[in-house]
Design a binder for these strands. Structure first.
Lengths: 246, 246
DNA sequence: CCGCTTTATTGACCCAGCTCAATCCGGCCT
DNA sequence: AGGCCGGATTGAGCTGGGTCAATAAAGCGG
């Protein structure tokens, strides 16, 4: 079964889901080989985004969701008046844009934190394909459901946790996401600025900086610029959800 | 076209989507008459929940989502250690349980705030039906997407807004939800305790109480126990998202 | 390699909202 | 009716983390 167009694209170095190292984490996760190529066919590759470039802007018409292939992004919502709110960081294999389905506009801008490549998945096609492929549909429901769950965890963090717990949670969560992707959970590079971390966690930059310094002086982590080494993971995990003395 | 079983149920006072006053807000929103009866067929009615009763408990196996028919509920997540976090209030026509799809467990308990009736929609059937009815599928995607968007608004509230702004936002949002459901946006009854409001908004009960008193003394609202009258809606809306005096 | 700009760290001070504690109120049961 | 109990209000202080300000260090373009 020759799929010449697709093959030519592949030879011309357009990557395909079948050969993507993320396929075990990404949307096609549950698909059979023969279904993956159907899925692959609706995907549009994109030129890599440079650091600071937007994948899309808040208010733009919703048309596609995107799977992160490499790099990382942040989602920022501006809501009229004052400050922006950074609502999410996206790592490879994660799905961007699901919150735009409802009112057909992206509710926030998504911006690359470093050189980043994404796969564009036109939602119309994704929806149509999800009619034929129950596994794909299930995976899509699951992705959205997981994001809902993560959001609720974030609400808990924002409304109940101290600044120290927030930072500890942020680091353990990132660490875990790296581990799942096959990277070291102990040593990694932050692709976001301190200001982004603060904005995301509901803290002032200065607080983020102070707490990282403190964690460092307590030998829990070693931080140098954006390089992070977790020295005492159990302690960090303890800090993340226990505490609250009294 | 006689659907005798269903009709008999209807006569025996089991309600049906076709006659439900919420149908224009609820899941079947986009369906044709003939499709609604298919949808109606998979729904299980439930005995009303009394105040304080749980629809389901955190950790229970996920099997169904629920549409609120009357009354209201709160979702509470316990996360191991200390405090609970109240992550959502649900009003009639809203869908409960969508965050349980992913890992097949409900990630929080959902408890009735007053006498409440719900329609149970077994997810297996809903998924299967969503294969045949693109409109239903779309509506489901939209519901989840909307919940994601609302969550992000909540994150913004929790991480950037002052206590006064939070209360004002809470009241305007509730007001709007009542309006959409055909109730007065100016005068309504809170079904939740102050403690619930505080927990939801990330504030101490005392703060909620103090701010309600202050809003009252400023003639923005009149509060008496759980009865709320919004006296100055424009002012309340202003309080909700502007402010931040520098 | 050198300024220049952006980002990060550290210190000093202050205040919004928390905690603790004392009522107060309303519903409900006997 | 009266008493009781849980929820709500109000007051008094305390403090975590914000703000403002001053460096320091890291990119980065030339």
């Amino acid at each position: 079964m020759p799929i010449s167009a697709s093959q030519r694209r592949s030879l011309a170095q357009a990557p395909r889901c079948q050969t993507c190292s993320l396929s075990s984490l990404c949307l096609p996760l549950a698909l059979q080989i023969e279904d993956i190529s159907q899925f692959d066919a609706i995907i549009r590759r994109r030129a890599p985004l440079k650091k600071g470039e937007a994948l899309f802007h808040q208010g733009e018409r919703f048309s596609s969701v995107f799977a992160v292939r490499s790099g990382s992004l942040k989602q920022v919502t501006s809501e009229g008046n004052g400050e922006d709110q950074l609502t999410n960081f996206y790592l490879p294999s994660e799905l961007v844009g699901l919150d735009g389905i409802d009112d057909e506009c992206y509710p926030g801008s998504v911006v690359a934190l470093e050189t980043t490549t994404v796969c564009e998945i036109p939602f119309k096609h994704l929806d149509a394909l999800s009619e034929q492929l129950p596994e794909l549909r299930g995976q899509l429901y699951r992705s959205m459901s997981k994001e809902l769950r993560d959001d609720r965890r974030m609400m808990r963090l924002l409304s109940r946790k101290t600044a120290d717990q927030r930072l500890a949670t942020f680091l353990t969560t990132l660490s875990d996401r790296f581990r799942r992707r096959g990277y070291s959970p102990y040593s990694f590079r932050l692709s976001m600025a301190r200001a982004d971390i603060g904005n995301y966690l509901g803290l002032a930059v200065e607080t983020v900086s102070r707490i990282l310094s403190r964690l460092q002086s307590q030998q829990v982590v070693a931080v140098s610029g954006r390089e992070v080494n977790i020295l005492d993971m159990p302690r960090l995990i303890t800090l993340a959800d226990e505490e609250t003395p009294t």
